[in-house]
Design a protein around this nucleic acid. Structure first.
Lengths: 262, 262
DNA sequence: GGCGCCGATGACCTCGGACGTCATTGCCGG
DNA sequence: CCGGCAATGACGTCCGAGGTCATCGGCGCC
């Protein structure tokens, strides 16, 4: 049901046996009845948080491993204070990653899509942004959706708009951030593009096509947003990396050429 | 963590008010006493799993948000085990993103670091993996840490090992996945490299240096793991993208050359 | 001011589950 | 056959989720 296959019982048993202790022994030391210990190990009873800690103390279970006990017992892990990497230290890494994205444009944004950093390739696009949109902070969504921004260069504005609005709305629902409510209202107030045939519905919001007319030529890009971390274990949950990948070889060549010329 | 610091009460209240419902209204619909709803919202009482689900149902809380409710109530998040296989819809997007990573090697892995997809640049490295490590599934961590795998080519094996073990351990603590426990034990059983002076402690695990001796020359890479989604809103939480960025121009040139030659 | 709606709260009840005590049973190695 | 060990049945305690009924104070509205 809620947790992994076997519950907390086998976990307790494993550690007890690893310590070569009998149920009687442990139960006396941890001030538990042998019966209850037996029930816990066989899964007929689920230990409370307090009981888990007492048993783990007695069995010398290292702190890091205790999370598994709580999870297996259906309880939220208590040692949850994992310090998020602080922005200062991450700054170097982020710049390196942005630079590493090579000739592909990439930016780092915060949870409101305000720009934190961008690589050279991206700056080539951003210099065209009119001053009133350039911030700081420069808001990536405003920059791409405002009529004076990149919106006029978009060949699939309807799709872009739909995707951006959906994304902001979800973020707002989740964070309840009033700043996002304002941003959402503002973005919605922009003139909606005619719902042209540009809606290549991809369904998933993982990679969104972005076709752009630029001084370098027409670009077919793929826009993605990612955050640092493994599945279910986000390391830095305040910064996202937005990357524009080339979707075809022509675009790739253009980006490489533009990058080489800089 | 993604939830707010205060308990589940404010969460319930926020969603109820967002839906413009009164306590009386919701309590009738969810078959709860108004008193108890009030207690829950003010934090004087903690809702059970069942109660959380009933309230979330009534308030139309999207599935992905409900984990926050459980966590805030001190309960382990219910593993809504999504079948890994059905990444079909995302498959196209993932392949496109991997290809877009250009001459930089990149792979998609699941939460156990089993390989799901890789781009051409990555395959050039993976073809050297001996058959017994090549799976399927090909486990990226095993492939890089096994003595017969890439480990022998690493110039900073100690740092790599430390990082990988830390990462797996954290993932395991978080998911309590027995497969990860096995993987962890296996990886730890590999001979530890001498703790040479290769430990460029970066502290954060955002971007890890990886220096590699290959047939193409010595590579200075930067290894990062990301998942799709905005800050605090991970869209695909079972798949991670691992990318190896060039950390210097020499490496960049080598990768471009190797990519062009293919 | 009065009237409703809404939310908070006190008194009191039920019920299920964590956990206790006592006693019994069955397994296994010496 | 015996002693250590684990499982379990019967029965009790305690606590917290959650219910019912009633009350009260704040607030918008006629």
């Amino acid at each position: 049901m809620t947790t992994t296959a076997d519950g907390v019982g086998p976990l307790v048993r494993r550690w007890r046996e690893r310590r070569h202790r009998s149920q009687l022994d442990v139960s006396i030391a941890a001030d538990v009845s042998t019966r209850h210990l037996s029930f816990i190990e066989t899964g007929r009873s689920t230990p409370s948080r307090d009981m888990i800690e007492r048993l783990c103390d007695e069995l010398d279970v290292p702190l890091r491993e205790r999370n598994a006990f709580h999870l297996a017992a259906g309880l939220a892990p208590p040692h949850r204070a994992r310090p998020l990497a602080d922005l200062g230290a991450a700054r170097v890494a982020i710049d390196a990653v942005l630079a590493g994205h090579g000739p592909n444009p990439a930016v780092a944004v915060d949870s409101r899509w305000d720009l934190l950093a961008a690589n050279d390739a991206m700056w080539r696009f951003l210099t065209d942004i009119p001053a009133e949109l350039a911030g700081p902070p420069l808001n990536m969504l405003r920059a791409t959706m405002h009529p004076d921004g990149l919106a006029s260069l978009l060949q699939n504005p309807a799709q872009w708009r739909a995707h951006v609005l959906r994304r902001v709305r979800r973020q707002w629902e989740r964070t309840d951030d009033p700043a996002l409510a304002d941003l959402l209202a503002e973005l919605e107030s922009y003139p909606a593009p005619p719902p042209g045939g540009d809606v290549e519905t991809t369904g998933d919001d993982i990679a969104v096509p972005m076709r752009l007319t630029t001084e370098f030529g027409d670009l077919a890009l793929l826009y993605t947003v990612t955050v640092f971390g493994s599945p279910r274990d986000v390391t830095l949950d305040e910064i996202a990396i937005e990357t524009f990948f080339p979707a075809d070889d022509a675009t790739r060549r253009i980006l490489v050429a533009a990058g080489g010329g800089a």
